[in-house]
Computed example of a mutant assay.
Amino acid sequence: MTANWTELGDRCWVRRYPEWDLNIGVVAGSAGVLVIDTHATVSYATSLLDDVRQLVPGSEVRWAVNTHAHFDHTFGNSVFADAGVTVISQENAAAQLLERGPLLQQRYVENPGVDPDFPTIPADVIAEIAVAPVVAASETFAVAKVIDLGDRRVELLHLGNGHTDGDIVVLVPDADVIFTGDLVESSGPPSYGDDCYPLDWPDTLDRIVGLLTATTRVVPGHGPVVDAEFVRDQGGEIGSVANNISGLHHNGATLDYALRHDEWPYPTAQLADAVRRGYEQLGGVRRTLPMA
């Protein structure tokens, strides 16, 4: 371990930042350094860039990758872009950041000081998020991209929708490490927001499992590093959510009834957006049974 960085494999590190229990990845090669996610504010990102430069002194930070569009992973993009770093994301994530980022900021401007979704965020941090420059990736891709770090490669893969429609995993083959962003979470239940794809998510996780070995270190978006078994187990739970939504819809349950359903692997209150999004994807309500 170097300071607060944990080396998971050859020149491949992770650091858990206490804000949002956020994992930031670093991969170094002979041609430069790649950073995975850029944090949530200008000040956090500035500190992050300093931390990375101290971790790999003498090496140029050349690439920053967004695992998806959410602010805690992307609102530091401007700091990296201003430093000459190439910021990369899946094309849907870049578009979503430009569309949804300002809407989040406007919500903070209109309701300063508190975020009901993240009640532990201090008021001064919310104020900083509200004015952070929203900078999307300068390079995007659709399905896959390989970054040549000189003596090694890093693979960026969009394996399907799940937490959002722009999720990617970052695979470091020679270190047997994969960074999954919020497709996998170990600090708590997976986060189903109003841009999630609950019915697609299980298949996307199946594809991730197909990339793993018995020794792969899996870095979730938030929380401790996990292994393939953890991903399989969480995939089963996410599959159960999808099956429940599909079953309720197929049986004619109204949306209100489905929102009151309590047979889930996660707390019901955390699945409201998942149920709504699933019903939207399935085309509304099939009224075949007299469910209230």
Results as ranks from 00 to 15, higher is better:
Leu199Val: 08
Val231Glu: 01
His250Glu: 15
Pro190Gly: 12
Ser187Leu: 09
Thr254Asp: 13
Gly162Pro: 10
Ser187Lys: 14
Val241Glu: 06
Asp200Met: 00
Gly150Met: 02
Thr215Trp: 14
Arg260Leu: 11
Asp148Met: 06
His222Asn: 13
His158Tyr: 11
His163Glu: 03
Gly162Leu: 01
Val177Thr: 07
Asp227Arg: 00
Leu157Thr: 04
Asp165Gly: 14
Pro198Asn: 04
Ile178Asp: 02
Val225His: 08
Val177Leu: 05
Asp233Lys: 09
Ser240Ile: 02
Gln234His: 04
Leu212Glu: 09
His261Leu: 11
Lys145Cys: 07
Ala142Pro: 02
Leu199Lys: 03
Pro198Ile: 03
His261Asn: 12
Leu248Asp: 06
Asn161Glu: 09
Asp167Cys: 13
Val184Lys: 10
Ile178Thr: 03
Lys145Asp: 08
Gly188Lys: 13
Thr140Lys: 10
Ser186Gly: 07
His250Pro: 00
Val177Glu: 03
Phe141Arg: 11
Ser186Gln: 14
Gly236Cys: 04
Leu149Lys: 06
Tyr257Gly: 06
Phe230Asn: 00
Asp203Met: 02
His250Asp: 15
Gly160Tyr: 01
Leu211Asn: 04
Gly236Ala: 14
Asp151Met: 06
Asp206Trp: 01
Asp256Pro: 13
Asp194Leu: 03
Gly181Asp: 12
Asp165Gln: 11
Asn244Tyr: 05
His158Trp: 07
Pro190Ile: 12
Leu149Met: 11
Leu205Pro: 03
Asp176Tyr: 12
Glu237Met: 14
Gly188Pro: 02
Ala258Val: 01
Ala228Lys: 01
Thr216Arg: 08
Arg153Gly: 10
Gly236Arg: 14
Val209Leu: 04
Val219Asp: 07
Gly221Asn: 15
Leu183Glu: 13
Val172Glu: 01
His163Asp: 02
Glu229Tyr: 02
Glu155Asp: 15
Val231Met: 06
Leu157Asp: 10
Asp176Asn: 12
Tyr192Val: 11
Gly150Ile: 03
Asp256Gly: 09
Gln234Asn: 08
Ala258Pro: 13
Ser191Asn: 15
Glu155Ala: 10
Asp167Met: 04
Gly150Glu: 05
Glu155His: 12
Asn244Met: 09
Ile178His: 01
Arg232Gln: 14
Asp167Thr: 07
Leu157Ser: 07
Leu159Pro: 15
Ala228Asp: 10
Val170Tyr: 03
Trp201Pro: 06
Glu229Pro: 00
Asn243Phe: 08
Asp262Val: 06
Val184His: 08
Val184Arg: 12
Arg260Cys: 13
Thr216Cys: 09
His158Leu: 09
Gly193Leu: 09
Tyr257Ile: 05
Val143Leu: 00
Leu149Cys: 10
Ile147His: 04
Pro202Tyr: 02
Glu185Lys: 13
Tyr192Glu: 10
Ser240Cys: 03
Val241Tyr: 02
Asp227Pro: 08
His261Glu: 09
Val146Arg: 12
Ile147Gly: 12
Gly221Trp: 09
Asn251Cys: 12
Pro220Cys: 06
Leu212Thr: 04
